[in-house]
Structures are given as structure tokens and as C-alpha cells.
């Protein structure tokens, strides 16, 4: 049986102004239950790619489909199919940790029973029990990041878009997040994850997409990338370093 991809990015070209695209003809897929690492240097186009997937930017060419549907075809269904964890926590100052989870659950139409069960588990997992009634403005940066992550997971959609989730998290938080992502993917959800901590994600992601100057320069499993680059047994970090240094793989802006 053919597996339908949860996310399909097809020949996506886009950016902040017409005539000056940041992304050039990007194509990739995220299958059900897959965790994909989107990696690249600062300014490679990772966040811009994510913004296009989230529908915050309109493609100049190509299209993005989530579960077979585009944003314009069914906006609400498209949005209900994904949850986002941004690089910088963006919370409502006037709401407590628990209220953020409740607002997200209400917005994603999660039943009150599921919300109770999921929120209890997440609060315990991320060690936020003594902060659940604190206003978000009184939390540290790492705690705010945990709230962002918990909000995404309380919604439990088929696809997670996660941008640099480890920034500000303590080692315990990083471990909890990684374990929970593995569990989430085993339950059938898909994750597109962007991170610079390559040594960590190397062991967790099923496939990797390497973006450089707005183009996908290689993609595949770690083994496939090793084969493509002829670097058997080399860690992802070293392969990535060589890839972005080597002019054979990089394409000029001209």
C-alpha cells in the first residue's frame, strides 16, 4: 500500500519579496510517523521554509500540502493538522501555564477529558508542576520554551513543526523532549525538526534535509547521506561541515 505523506513540499520557491526568493525549488516529504531533521547554517532558509509550511508566507512558486490539502483549499483543516514550536517562545503574558494549555486544547477542539489527561502528563514530564499557575511573564526563558512545547503536544495533531526546540532547555528538559518526540512519532505523528545540535538529533531523526542558501543540497537517511557524500562512518556534524564548505555541493547565489 502506498504511504500518503503527511507533509509534501513540492518545488517551493518563496521569500520576503518577489524577484528575490530565499527558497529555490525546494521539495521534500514527511511521512507518517517520521521525524525529519531540517539542518542548515544561519540564513540557510530553515525558518522561511517553516513559515511557508505554517501558511505565514505565500509561496512564489510550488505548493505545500498537509495530508493532501493546501491551506487555501481548507484553511481550518490545514491548521488543525499541525502544531508549531517557535525558536523564541511567544506566550500570552496574561495567561498562566495551565491556561495556555487550556486555550490551545480549546482551539484544537481537544476534548476536556483528553486535555486533562495530556496536560497532567506533560506538566509532570517537563517538571512544571510548581509553575502551572504562574503567569507566563514570570517564567524563565527555558520554562517558556517548555510551555511552547507542551502547548504543541497537548494539541496532538498529525504534524509538528519544531524550530530549534533545545534553546534554553536544561539537560533534563532536552531529554524529556527527545523521549516524548520518540513516543509521539511511534504513535503515528510526524515531526519536522530544525536544530543546530547535530550530535543530538543524529540519533533521533529518521531522515535529514540539508538546506544551504535556500536550496536542498542533500537529503535522506544518515546512511544515504554518507553514501552520497562518500563519507562512510563519519558523524553528521562532520558531514554537514564538509558539505557547506565544499563548493561541489553549494550553489552560488548568481
Amino acid at each position: 500500500m502506498e504511504q500518503v505523506s503527511v507533509l509534501n513540499v513540492n518545488r517551493l520557491t518563496g521569500g520576503y519579496s518577489h524577484g528575490k526568493p530565499v527558497l529555490h525549488d525546494i521539495s521534500f516529504e514527511v511521512g507518517r510517523g517520521e521525524m525529519i531533521g531540517l539542518i542548515g547554517l544561519n540564513g540557510a532558509g530553515k525558518s522561511t521554509t517553516m513559515k511557508h509550511i505554517l501558511g505565514l508566507m505565500t509561496p512564489q512558486g510550488g505548493e505545500v500540502r498537509i495530508q493532501g490539502s493546501t491551506l487555501s483549499a481548507d484553511t481550518q483543516q490545514y491548521r488543525a493538522s499541525l502544531a508549531f514550536v517557535p525558536e523564541s517562545p511567544q506566550l500570552y503574558e496574561e495567561m498562566t501555564v495551565r491556561e495556555h494549555l487550556e486555550f490551545t486544547a480549546r482551539a484544537y477542539n481537544v476534548s476536556p477529558e483528553d486535555y486533562e489527561q495530556r496536560s497532567r502528563r506533560l506538566i509532570q514530564l517537563f517538571n512544571m508542576g510548581d509553575k502551572e499557575d504562574s503567569l507566563s511573564m514570570h517564567l524563565s526563558k527555558g520554562m517558556k520554551q517548555k510551555v511552547m512545547i507542551m502547548c504543541a503536544f497537548v494539541a496532538a495533531p498529525p504534524l509538528y513543526i519544531i524550530d530549534e526546540p533545545f534553546l534554553g532547555l536544561d539537560p533534563l528538559g532536552i531529554r524529556s523532549l527527545l523521549d516524548f518526540m520518540v513516543e509521539t512519532k511511534q504513535n503515528g505523528s510526524s515531526i519536522l525538526l530544525s536544530s543546530h545540535i547535530l550530535s543530538t538529533i543524529e540519533n533521533y531523526c529518521d531522515r535529514f534535509i540539508v538546506l544551504h542558501k535556500g536550496r536542498v543540497i542533500v537529503q535522506g537517511t544518515l546512511e544515504q547521506i554518507r553514501e552520497q557524500t562518500g563519507q562512510q562512518g563519519v558523524p553528521l556534524e562532520q558531514i554537514f561541515y564538509d558539505l557547506v564548505q565544499d563548493s561541489k555541493w553549494t550553489v552560488s547565489d548568481e
Binding site: T75, T104, A107
Partner: peptide, 12 residues
């Protein structure tokens, strides 16, 4: 200007 109202599946 909140990001979440552009992303959450709330009716328009």
C-alpha cells in the same frame, strides 16, 4: 499581531 491566531485552527 499574535502569532498563534494565525496558526491555531480558530474559525475566522
Amino acid at each position: 499581531d499574535t502569532l498563534w491566531l494565525s496558526i491555531y485552527p480558530l474559525p475566522p
